[in-house]
Amino acid sequence: MKVTVIGGTGLIGSQLVTALRAAGHDVVPAAPSTGVDLLTGVGLDEVIEGADTVVNVSNSPTFDEASPAFFRTTVGNLLAAGERAGVRHQVALSIVGVDRVPQLDYYRAKTLQEELLRGGPTPYSIVRATQFFEFMDAVMSWTADDRTVRLPATPVQPIATADVVAALADVTTGPPLNGILDVAGPDVFPLDELGRLTLAVRQDARTVVTDERAGMFAAVEGDVLTAGPDARPAPTRYEDWLRTG
C-alpha cells in the first residue's frame, strides 16, 4: 500500500511513517521541509500521486481564532488533490470530545476539519485521541512560575503518542471507517493531580495549586475530554512512561 502522511515529520507523523514502513508499506512523508505547502497547495499533487491512503496529522500553527481558517483552506486543498489523484481513503487525527468544547477556538477549528472531511468526496476515517503524555510539560508551562504550577481539576485521560500511532497505523491500513474511532489512555486523572504526579516523579519541588481558572483547560466543563466505553484502550500508563522516559 502507498500512503502519504501529511505532517509526516512531526511528533506523530514521523512515528507513523516509521511504523508503516516497518510493516512493509510505501510511505511518503509530506511537510514544508519536503516542499509541500498545505495552505497554497504547492507540492500536494506530486506527493499524493499514486497514494492509496492519505493520513493528515498536520496542525495549525496557532491555537487561536486564526485556526479555523487554516483547517478550512488546508482540508479543502487536501481533499481536492486527493480526488484528482484517485485516493481511496482519507484519514485524519482529531481530539476526543472536540465537538463538545465550543469555548475553545482550536477545538472549534478541529470540529470544522472533521465536518469538511465527512462532507468530502472520499471515504474517510477519523481517529480521535485524548491528550498526549508528551504535552504535559507544555500544559504546565502555561501557568507556572518558579514556585507553583496552577492547574484546574479538569478530568483528562492522557495517552502515549506511541499508542496513538499504533491506532492510526491500524486504521490507515484497514478499510475506511466512514466514522470515528476514539483512542484513550488507561487512566483518568484530574489535571491538577496529573501535574502533582509529574512533579513528584521528576523530584520537582514546585507546588501544584488547584485553580479552576488557570490555562486553556479551565474552559472545559465536566468529563468531555475523557473517552466513552467504546474507545480503543491504550496500554501505556502515564507513571510508567514518566519513569522510563
Rank of each mutant, 00 (worst) to 15 (best):
R150V: 09
A153L: 01
L116V: 00
D145Y: 04
L117C: 06
D137K: 13
Y106K: 12
A153W: 01
V149K: 03
V183L: 01
R128Y: 08
F133R: 04
V183K: 02
G119P: 13
L112W: 06
L151S: 07
D105V: 00
W142Y: 11
T161P: 02
A129M: 12
G120P: 11
V188K: 00
A144R: 14
W142K: 12
P123T: 08
F132T: 10
A109K: 07
Y124W: 15
D105H: 09
L177C: 08
P186R: 00
A160W: 04
V139Q: 05
D187L: 00
L117I: 03
F135S: 14
P186F: 03
T111E: 11
D146S: 10
Y106P: 05
E114W: 05
N178T: 02
E115W: 02
R118P: 09
L168H: 13
L151N: 08
P123Y: 13
T130I: 12
T143I: 07
P123M: 15
F133Q: 05
R128K: 15
L168Q: 11
T161M: 04
L181Y: 05
T122H: 15
D182V: 00
P123G: 15
P155I: 05
R128L: 06
V165N: 04
E114Y: 05
V164S: 05
L181K: 03
R108K: 11
S125V: 12
T143D: 07
P155N: 11
F133P: 04
T172S: 09
E114I: 00
T130H: 11
A153Q: 12
D163V: 03
L112C: 02
P175F: 11
L151R: 02
V139W: 02
D105Y: 06
V127M: 14
L116C: 09
D146I: 00
T143M: 05
T143V: 08
A169M: 09
V139C: 04
I180S: 10
T173V: 13
A167W: 02
V171H: 10
I126W: 13
D137W: 10
T154V: 08
V183R: 02
T122N: 14
R108G: 01
R128S: 09
G174H: 08
A162R: 13
Q131G: 14
R150I: 08
L151H: 07
V164Y: 03
M136L: 15
T154H: 02
T143G: 03
G174V: 07
A138K: 14
V171I: 12
R118D: 13
P121F: 11
V183T: 06
